[in-house]
């Protein structure tokens, strides 16, 4: 059986887990193609108008899978962490997608770890039973999947970008890039599906590398550290991804090697407006240069490039002034 996984949203976090899980149960995993203008155009045509850019992109990825797969994996992810939530748009995702015509059957399973972790195993059992009645086989697949996931997060924590980490987890080589140490390093923060999707982010990571700037992201900071830093907020945020962003930001504000901070937000994203605002205030009081970039459908790159160039000029200028 061919199971389709959209290369979008939480793909950047949990793909290794589900890839191994499905493969262990004998299914063939099919990924949608990397984001392109064509995929976004298909998404825009079908999406509800008030969702954010990455959700519109998700529609496109689902449509890209139609005809190639027997089922599409589309869990309703409510919460992945105790007493925290994922963005409300993720809760409604299966309902929004179900309205599309001519879709293959969807694998819809609720995943809600708000109360405790046990819900994950219930979900895994439900999904696994589509393929086999053998509980032991499902348990074994789940164990291997969790191992792969752990390895992936560990690689991210070591400073790899998702594409590189995925290649290593899957045993592919070739994507290996030798990154030289840069003199200037900036922290790039934002939702993983904005930061790591080269189409949505207008290739910002690659552009920065080409400008001779080292880039480090929230996923490079281990969970333990982001949690302890995020606890400095007088009141905890509701969103797991927002907490990670804030924790990473507070961590980077104390790293002398980080010369500036860029926050990438999707236009119309509620959580981003909140976390971005908080990070900006703390960056200001720490005296670290901060830039907020808002992404939307426009493909004109001049706006982003102007702001990025000016920001790097400022960072370098300030660095030179401080050292002299």
């Amino acid at each position: 059986m061919r199971i389709g996984i959209p290369r979008s949203l939480l793909y950047y976090y949990y793909y290794p887990l589900w890839r191994v899980f499905f493969a262990e149960l004998g299914a063939q995993v099919v990924l949608s193609s990397p984001s392109t203008k064509g995929i976004l155009a298909a998404g825009l045509k079908h999406a509800v108008d008030e969702v954010c850019l990455p959700v519109k992109m998700f529609y496109g990825h689902v449509l890209d899978l139609v005809g190639q797969v027997d089922m599409i994996f589309l869990p309703r992810i409510v919460s992945v962490e105790k007493r925290e939530y994922i963005c409300p748009k993720f809760l409604g995702l299966p309902d929004m997608i179900r309205c599309l015509k001519d879709l293959p059957p969807l694998i819809e399973v609720d995943i809600n770890l708000y109360k405790n972790n046990r819900d994950f195993y219930r979900a895994v059992k439900n999904i696994g039973s589509i393929f086999t009645k053998n509980h032991l086989a499902i348990g074994r697949a789940c164990f291997k999947a969790l191992q792969a996931q752990k390895k992936y997060f560990r690689l991210l924590n070591m400073g790899l970008m998702p594409a590189e980490a995925l290649a290593l987890v899957e045993g592919r080589t070739g994507d290996k890039s030798q990154r030289k140490k840069e003199r200037l390093n900036i922290a790039l923060l934002g939702h993983p599906y904005n930061v790591y999707d080269p189409y949505i982010s207008m290739d910002i990571i690659d552009r920065l590398h080409k400008m001779g700037v080292g880039v480090t992201t929230a996923e490079h900071v281990p969970d333990k550290i982001t949690r302890s830093y995020a606890a400095r907020l007088p009141k905890k945020l509701f969103w797991t991804l927002g907490n990670r962003m804030i924790g990473a930001a507070f961590h980077y504000l104390e790293q002398p090697g980080i010369s500036g901070m860029v926050h990438l937000a999707a236009f119309g994203c509620g959580p981003d407006s909140m976390t971005g605002g908080i990070i900006e205030r703390y960056a200001h009081s720490s005296g670290i240069p901060f830039l907020s970039l808002t992404l939307d459908e426009h493909t004109g790159e001049a706006g982003i490039m102007t702001r990025l160039e000016a920001f790097l000029d400022m960072v370098q200028w300030r660095k030179a002034a401080f050292s002299s």
């Binding site: 236009f267 200001h284 240069p289 901060f290 808002t294 939307d296 426009h298 102007t306 702001r307 000016a310 920001f311 000029d313 400022m314 200028w317 300030r318 002034a321």
Partner: peptide, 13 residues
């Protein structure tokens, strides 16, 4: 400040 750009902002979309 002291002849060095320390912050800037541009209108968004």
């Amino acid at each position: 400040r002291n002849g060095v750009v320390t912050d800037f902002a541009m209108n968004t979309v």
